[in-house]
């Protein structure tokens, strides 16, 4: 069993839901990323989604765009992101790390080379936002050969046939985007999420995480009741953005701990 499956299996037997924070590698500075990852884990995170900065993050809202720009000011590239994960693995062999980003940096590196390096670095899954299933069968196979899960997005507008198509390829967990739009929007509709998850569960056997628009403990708790995992991105990035350097780690840790508490309070 790989780290992602292992994590969900342990959580399940403890009747707990996964908390998955998202940060961009290199934001606000490359030297802080590994430390930030450890403090996310210490505050109660189960899986870390690590964003690979890209110059043109078409599916992201202003908050994550800015975090990508801050990282790019330090010229953080995919090679650096892989080194950060290797560094993280020196102390943590347990927490899954999923890279999230866009296709072009991977293609510039060469996807076969990338897959080999990602395996070596101790990465567990990869979510490439702009690789929909029909364009990436070779990619999925290549990641699989290196023991990496391909994480896919599904959205409120995904049709039944697409859901089935994604279900066939997806590994690790599904990331359900809970609203129409880009990351950072703030009007998640719990009722429609609940209905949608029921439909997805009929076809999908791996865990389902929900993200986009989760900004407070209350929403996180409510989503935890419905889904297997709660993904929190823009809200954490905002905390990073607004915290002075000397408070950054503790502010983020406090935020994550609050989310953890809210999620655990909803234990079903």
């Amino acid at each position: 069993m790989n780290r992602i499956a292992q994590t969900f299996s342990v959580l399940q037997s403890n009747h707990k839901k996964a908390l998955i924070p998202f940060i961009t590698a290199g934001d606000p500075a490359p030297a802080l990323t590994v430390e930030l990852m450890h403090s996310l884990v210490n505050a109660g995170s189960d899986i870390i989604e690590l964003g690979v900065p890209f110059s043109d993050p078409m599916a992201d809202g202003p908050t994550i765009q800015r975090s990508s720009e801050r990282a790019l000011k330090h010229r953080v590239g995919l090679h650096d992101v892989l080194s950060m994960v290797s560094e993280f693995r020196k102390e943590n062999m347990r927490t899954p790390v999923v890279l999230m980003g866009y296709a072009n940096p991977v293609e510039a590196m060469g996807y076969k080379y990338f897959a080999a390096q990602a395996e070596k670095a101790g990465i567990d899954g990869v979510l490439t936002v702009d690789y929909p299933p029909e364009e990436c069968e070779e990619w999925v196979r290549c990641l699989e050969q290196h023991g990496l899960d391909t994480i896919f997005l599904l959205s409120p507008t995904s049709t039944q046939s697409r859901i089935a198509q994604v279900a066939k390829l997806a590994k690790g967990y599904i990331y359900y985007v809970s609203l129409k739009g880009v990351t950072g929007a703030s009007h998640l509709d719990l009722k429609s999420v609940a209905l949608r998850l029921e439909e997805l569960r009929a076809v999908i056997s791996i865990p389902i995480g929900v993200g986009f628009g989760i900004r407070d403990g209350k929403t996180a708790g409510a989503v935890a009741k419905l889904a297997d995992a709660v993904v929190i991105g823009s809200r954490i990035i905002e905390e990073i953005e607004h915290s002075p350097q000397n408070k950054l780690l503790s502010n983020v840790a406090e935020l994550v701990a609050r989310m953890r508490e809210a999620i655990d309070a909803q234990r079903s």
């Binding site: 599916a59 929909p132 029909e134 959205s155 507008t157 995904s158 994604v166 129409k180 880009v182």
Partner: peptide, 22 residues
């Protein structure tokens, strides 16, 4: 049918845009 000109073109977008493009 999928919009390819040899290896070029295609549909490389996030899932959120797929239904609009369909």
């Amino acid at each position: 049918k999928q919009g390819h000109f040899g290896p070029y073109g295609g549909v490389f977008v996030a899932e959120t845009l797929i239904s609009a493009l369909d």
